[in-house]
């Protein structure tokens, strides 16, 4: 479904701030895979997401989605195939528009927008049904402006908007990191449910090792712009946080001082 071959990205090239963010990354994701991505700050996780979604273009290498070369396809064209949830709960929804209008915009994702009414009766019924799958009672607040919702509710709505058109690829960029623990747990379980129900090919960046182990069928760990650990389906089932840390230490030969703090 997704194929990255030798993707290389450098920022501020030729200056004192030069930083190689991705060092010739190769990654193949099959249809139906749910890959969790972990790594410390500056490992290149977000850059990877931005290159897959088309916000950034790689300096070298190629990106293929569904067998089609999309390396330099702009974001607005590529996002017909890609659903995305951002870390910031404010980023994925339009605050001054209503819940139904937000859903209508997401619904129009994979077709050409026209002068058709964005909110027909049939659409509304479908939206209500989809909303009720979140179990948050949002279907009763259909005409409320999204700016009035809490961060958790907005993130749940973003998740629905990113996924309910069944995109080829779902990108989750630390989408539970900005929420309090109970809300984060809710979004995590919704994620599991939605990805499973629709069989979506998913990439999820997270800072939380336990979450990375619990979700998905594959796990990759990034460090300094490289994929340093790849754990496949069978192996992943028996993986623990301790095991993951040991794996990292063995490969890098360095102490994970910072990452221990995240476990707590």
């Amino acid at each position: 479904m997704l194929q990255l071959s030798s993707v290389y990205k450098v920022f501020n090239e030729g200056t004192a701030d030069e930083k190689v963010s991705l060092q010739h990354i190769n990654l193949t994701v099959e249809a139906g895979d749910f890959v969790t991505i972990i790594g410390s700050n500056g490992a290149g996780k977000s850059t990877l997401m931005n290159i897959i979604s088309g916000v950034l273009f790689p300096d070298e290498g190629e990106v293929m989605i569904g067998g089609k070369k999309v390396t330099t396809l702009p974001e607005y064209k590529r996002s017909k195939m890609i659903g995305r949830v951002f870390q910031d709960p404010m980023a994925g929804t339009a605050p001054s528009m209503t819940i139904e209008e937000n859903l209508a915009m997401a619904y129009a994702r994979n077709r050409k927008r026209s002068l058709r009414n964005g909110l027909t009766k049939a659409n509304r019924t479908f939206f209500k049904e989809a909303l009720s799958s979140l179990h948050l009672g949002l279907e009763d607040r259909f005409k409320a402006k999204v700016g009035l919702l809490s961060g958790g509710e907005r993130q749940a709505l973003s998740l629905l908007m990113a996924s309910f058109t069944k995109p080829d690829l779902l990108l989750l960029d630390e989408h539970t990191a900005a929420l309090d623990p109970s809300r984060a747990a809710l979004i995590t379980s919704l994620t599991k449910e939605i990805v499973h129900a629709n069989g979506l090919t998913t990439l999820m960046v997270t800072h939380n090792m336990q979450q990375a182990i619990d979700l998905g069928n594959r796990l990759i760990m990034m460090d300094k712009g490289q994929i340093i650990v790849e754990v496949k389906e069978e192996e992943k089932k028996t993986l623990t946080v301790e095991g993951l840390l040991q794996l990292f230490q063995r490969i890098k030969g360095e102490q994970l001082v910072n990452d221990r703090a995240i476990l707590s």
Binding site: S53, P74, E75, Y76, K77, R78, S79, K80, I82, R84, F86, M90, A91, G92, T93, A94, P95, S96, M97, E101, A104, M105, A106, A108, R109, N110, R113, S114, L115, R116, N117, G118, L119, M161
Partner: peptide, 24 residues
């Protein structure tokens, strides 16, 4: 209220979001 109109409003409201929803 049309599909294009909704996308236009979102352009003023949250540009990042609407370009991630395939609007130019």
């Amino acid at each position: 209220r049309t599909e294009i109109g909704l996308a236009l409003r979102a352009t003023g409201d949250n540009k990042r979001m609407i370009s991630s929803l395939s609007a130019n």
